[in-house]
Design a protein around this nucleic acid. Structure first.
Lengths: 215, 215
DNA sequence: GTCTATAGGCTGATAGAC
DNA sequence: GTCTATCAGCCTATAGAC
């Protein structure tokens, strides 16, 4: 029975090989630069062979997107254990932006390209990686609320959504409007996080984390 | 001498006609759906004729992008006169998001597609529409600083950049991750603005504008 | 200024031999 | 499972006639 298993294994390996090559092309030339012919040449197979392993180009895009999202989750892992929810939010924001700026083409593919891609990644169900990772944000605001650190009528879900749009805004605008934003992405994130969590820096500082200096 | 002028006028009119048709295609099918052939068919001219009026496809894209940006500026006009800088910022944010959600394909073209497009629009010089419209944000924060409503070490330019990334984040994430964000764009913008300007809603409210209720 | 015709590419996907 | 060959289309851009 080993022969069937070897064949299955080899098939899986080729599928993996194709996806790796596809990822390389996307990293080098962007998603627009990925074509079946180019991909076939990269793996040294005929174009038709790709269709044995993937239904079509969209399936490859979906799989790349899924894996890109997994990479992002890897950036979250080290910080989800931070006890203080405020500190955790700061760390998540920093990790999110570090991922986006470090993997621009992956980020573009997952969060800036086709709505179908992101929804394929985000809408797998209530237990899928998308919902779970978003829950990291929501839980932090819920904890703040439970600790009496938010107004009674504050909506944790909504605050989490806004927090996400904030860090997404930093990454996506940096990636598209290159060189218009003078401030580096990390500093923008820092200012966003501080300001969002504490409010505009006031003359009489209420918190030791205030500042937002230009340096 | 009227003949030359009529010819010039007719040429300008055709250029205009082409751009209008191009805009319609982009609004219907997105920028990816705009091709020279399709555009030629829409205006009922041969493809080659388009190259008499535009150097290439990129010039058309640039022009569409420029006009899209002008449309955005039109949304700003009614609110730049608001006296209180905080109220002005709220109104600008609202107008920005209203434009983006109301003209998704235009917004995509200008701010989410090719870095070349946005930089062609934003980097025309210190007096170009891009710099001037960004200055609307910066000036508001500068006024806040001048009125002693910001910490002495706060950087208006940086706050303006972060404010822009915030509203851009709302629009772009809404456009790409359709249906994942539960909150409507207007409510996200409202919560972002309030929270960014006042800080997280605290148990003992400092400001009458606080709230962030879930309704 | 506008046309026809075409060069010289690219694309996703499939039929059918092996 | 992999190949060759190909379908059926798309594209930008240009040469040269009128």
């Amino acid at each position: 029975m080993g022969i069937t298993e070897r064949k299955q294994r080899q098939k899986a390996e080729l599928r993996e090989h194709i996806l790796t090559a596809a990822r390389d092309i996307v990293l080098r030339e962007g998603f627009g630069g990925l074509s079946m012919r180019k991909l076939a040449e990269a793996v040294e197979y005929a174009p038709a062979t790709l269709y044995v392993h993937f239904q079509n180009r969209d399936e490859i895009a979906r799989e790349l997107s899924r894996r890109g999202f997994q990479e992002l989750l890897g950036f979250f892992e080290p910080v989800v254990g931070i006890a203080d929810p405020l500190e955790r939010l700061r760390a998540v924001a920093e990790a999110y932006v570090r991922f986006g700026m470090g993997h621009p083409e992956t980020y573009r593919l997952v969060f800036m390209e086709d709505p179908k891609l992101s929804s394929a990644v985000l809408h797998g169900g209530p237990d899928d990686p998308g919902a779970r990772s978003f829950h990291v944000l929501e839980a932090a605001f819920e904890e703040l609320a439970a600790q009496g650190r938010l107004a009674a009528d504050a909506d944790p879900r909504r605050l989490a959504e806004v927090f996400w749009t904030g860090v997404h805004g930093v990454v996506s605008l940096k990636l598209t409007c290159t060189n218009f934003l003078q401030t580096p992405a990390e500093a923008l994130t820092d200012t966003f996080t501080r300001t969002f969590l504490d409010g505009l820096p006031k003359p009489s500082s209420r918190s030791p984390t205030q500042g937002n200096a230009s340096t």
